[in-house]
Amino acid sequence: MRRKASGNATLRAASDSTRPFLWSAHKRAAALAIHRGLLDWAQDYPVLTKSRNGQAILWTSLLTAYTFDGVVDQTAHEFAAQSLALFMYDEVVDDPSGNGAMAAIDVMAAIRDACVGRPSSSVNDEFEIERQVVTAFADAMSNPVRRSQSARWTKDFHGIVEMTVKGHLLSEEWRKRENFTPSLAEHLENGSYTAGAPIVAFSAAMSTAPDGLSDAHHDDYLAACLDLGWCVRAANDIAGLADDIRSGQTNAVSLGVKESRSSEVWVARSMLRDVHARLDSMLAIADDMSHPLALQYRWLANCTEFHVDWYVTKSGYSFSVEDWLAFEKSGPFSEAMLQVLVNT
């Protein structure tokens, strides 16, 4: 079965495997284990469990189980914790009060400072949500940074966080400039960082990569992490086109229509072709077992596919009846899961 995306663009049939009701019992059990781990970890950061009305912690559990092919280890738990903290960060960005963009920059700047061990005054303790996001992310990043395989990995990780801060500053600058819109290429390049996904993907490799990597292998992996961010931004914009038009937000599809004088359907299909070209490049390396980062590219490809398929075929983070039943077959619902189910 081929799934249809927004604007009738299609995804390949293989991406159906991102739906949990089609998973093996082992992978579903891994999602539950990750979920339990997140609940334990988030006791110190309770605001994180409320992200996306409680859906984010479940979605993050699925993302992690899929990304790591059902393996539950320290790297998977760290990836999940970082991803959940970034969900709450996104809610700061989406603050309906209109101050979200600047608050998000302050939060990411504080995260950057925390990751390099610098004290930060960017976020005042009176802002409890922001404080918890910063503290949670710094906590989730402490072990991967400590286990980083080289100074090069650590330096480039700090660079990604720094570019994410600059990306949000640039977005805010664009928003304030009268009668200005970025080009499609500028929007997607900047979105490669502001999507947030490269941070967690690079972190997973930073603490697990083999010693003695060549500069070329290192540079290629960094570029592939940014390809992940590009794909997430593109898929999110395809899925969120109608919402972005209503709210006046910059959207890649709208920019593509303006530049190419083509239809939304044509632009969405063109963007998905580019997404799959990037994904296929990741998969080609993941399938080459002689490559020193084959495992990390597999994680990267899985993470990309999960984001793209979930966003484009099922906009948002909602769960279908089949998804819920998949969890039920794997074990008893937790109280948190039941609460979300009641509210869905």
Rank of each mutant, 00 (worst) to 15 (best):
A81Y: 03
A103W: 04
P96F: 04
D94N: 05
I105R: 13
E91G: 02
R118E: 14
G100N: 05
A80W: 03
V93H: 07
A114Y: 11
D106F: 12
M102N: 14
A103K: 13
S97D: 09
E78N: 13
G98T: 07
V93I: 11
A109P: 06
P96I: 03
G98I: 07
L84D: 01
A109W: 04
V116R: 15
V92S: 00
A103I: 05
G117A: 08
D95S: 06
I105P: 08
E78L: 10
A81I: 03
D94K: 06
F87Q: 08
V93C: 08
V107F: 02
D106I: 09
V116E: 15
N99K: 14
R118K: 15
L84F: 04
C115W: 11
E91F: 02
A81N: 04
D106N: 12
M102V: 12
E91P: 01
A81C: 11
M88N: 10
D90S: 08
A103F: 05
D106Q: 15
A103C: 09
Q82M: 09
A104T: 06
V93L: 11
D94E: 10
A80Y: 08
A109Y: 06
I105C: 12
Q82R: 03
A103Y: 04
E91N: 04
I105Q: 12
D106K: 14
A101L: 12
G98L: 08
E91I: 02
D90A: 09
I111P: 07
I105Y: 12
M108I: 07
M108F: 06
D94I: 04
D106A: 15
G100Y: 03
D94A: 06
M88V: 11
V93F: 10
Y89Q: 10
R112D: 13
A110F: 03
E78W: 06
V92M: 01
D113H: 13
I105T: 15
A81D: 05
D95K: 03
L86I: 10
P96A: 04
Q82C: 06
Q82W: 02
L84R: 02
N99E: 14
A114V: 13
I111N: 11
D106S: 15
L86R: 05
L86T: 07
A110D: 00
A104M: 04
M108L: 09
D106P: 09
C115K: 11
A104F: 04
A110R: 01
Q82Y: 00
D90G: 10
N99Y: 12
F79K: 02
P96E: 06
D90T: 05
V92Q: 00
A80K: 03
P96T: 05
C115D: 14
V92W: 00
V92I: 08
M88C: 11
D113N: 14
V116T: 14
A110Y: 00
D94W: 03
A81F: 05
F79D: 01
R118H: 13
Q82L: 05
A103M: 09
R118P: 06
L86Y: 08
V92A: 00
G98H: 07
D106E: 14
C115P: 09
A110H: 01
A114G: 15
N99L: 11
A81R: 14
G117Q: 02
G117F: 07
D95V: 04
A114D: 12
V92P: 00
I111A: 11
A85S: 03
G117T: 05
R112Q: 15
V116D: 13
R118D: 14
E91M: 02
V116F: 13
N99S: 11
M88L: 12
M108D: 01
A80R: 04
A101Y: 08
